[in-house]
């Protein structure tokens, strides 16, 4: 968030010197033609396996080094909300999570933490999602998201409905926050994407459900921005989300989206899912709050097919 603000300001002052680093389209800022090369605002990968998709995708964004510096403490937040095996796609793909943690260490991360405030009983979620093992294999540390004392109150300045929230300490204290939702249908929020996934870093979700869920999701996104978002669209739960009933709900779509812009990433995900972006109201609400843009045409997008 801060980086982008800084960058946006620096664009104004130093006429695009900072634009090479930024993820906000300088094309948009200067009204120029879209460049054929990077930097990219959004990378979409199609085909292949989750780890190689990520490898190609992150390379297009300048590698993990663009996000993780030597000695950084990183927190990766996949969706581990459900006691379901990987093939049910209720949780983020463990192979992807493993690849992300590995890349963080390759980029010089000191520590990589992974957690989620789960819906089902957390130890079962961690185990049966395959994510606990994936994280440990990659040398990361998986921690409980169910310790209330770990959550600290923050004020949501721009929040319309959500004025305060209790956020997990790891998110507040880490140098880098990587948000890794799984692309899926959601009965209440229409879709579960990057901004919806952030409900797993706060304590009292009941309040959100009670007080205009979509607005709360957008409000929180205006406050807490991940340094990088990776949407796992490898296996996609097309209906009965977010928990799903069986593997019959799942289509092997093989997509992955990487972006620092949550609104843009979520917009792209709705197109992949073939649902009207407007129906996922928190996307428009978040755009209104300046979280990002739904105008994909204005963005510099890299499309990779494997």
């Amino acid at each position: 968030m801060k980086r982008r603000e800084f960058i946006q300001k620096s664009i104004g002052v130093t006429a695009g010197a900072g634009a090479l680093l930024t993820t906000v389209s300088f094309a948009k800022a200067f009204g120029a033609e879209k460049p054929a090369t990077g930097p990219y605002d959004l990378v979409a990968v199609k085909g292949g396996e989750p780890d190689e998709m990520f490898k190609k995708g992150i390379a297009a964004l300048g590698g993990m080094e663009a996000f993780v510096k030597q000695g950084d403490v990183v927190v990766v937040k996949p969706n581990i909300g459900w006691d379901a095996p990987p093939e049910r796609a209720a949780n983020t793909n463990p192979i992807l999570v493993k690849a992300i943690v590995e890349h963080c260490f390759l980029a010089g991360a000191k520590k990589v933490y992974v957690f989620d405030n789960t819906c089902d009983e957390w130890t079962r979620c961690y185990k049966n999602s395959g994510i606990e093992k994936a994280v440990k294999d990659a040398g990361g540390e998986i921690v409980s998201g169910k310790e209330k004392k770990m959550y600290k109150n923050v004020t949501i300045e721009k929040g319309k409905k959500l004025k305060t929230a209790s956020v997990h300490e790891l998110i507040l204290d880490s140098d880098v926050f990587i948000n890794v939702p799984v692309l899926k249908n959601h009965g209440g929020a229409t879709m579960s994407l990057t901004m919806k996934n952030m409900m797993g870093i706060v304590w009292d979700r009941g309040f959100w459900h009670k007080n205009n869920l979509h607005q709360c999701i957008a409000d929180f996104a205006s406050h807490q921005k991940p340094n990088l978002n990776i949407i796992d669209g490898y296996n996609v739960m097309k209906r009965n989300g977010p928990r799903g009933v069986s593997v019959d709900d799942v289509a092997n779509m093989k997509y992955q989206i990487l972006s620092t812009d949550m609104v843009a990433a979520d917009t792209a995900a709705t197109k992949i899912f073939a649902v009207d972006t407007k129906k996922v109201k928190h996307i428009a609400y978040a755009e209104e709050l300046g979280v990002g843009t739904t105008d994909l045409k204005s963005l510099n997008i890299k499309r990779i097919t494997i």
Binding site: C119, H186, G187, G188, H209, L213, N240, P242
Partner: peptide, 23 residues
């Protein structure tokens, strides 16, 4: 909530393993 506040919720259906509660 959906009826009384006219906002989205879906918390119940979200957690339902058989989708006996469906949005």
């Amino acid at each position: 909530i959906v009826e009384s506040e006219e906002t989205s919720c879906g918390s119940c259906s979200e957690h339902c393993p058989t989708q006996a509660v469906k949005m």
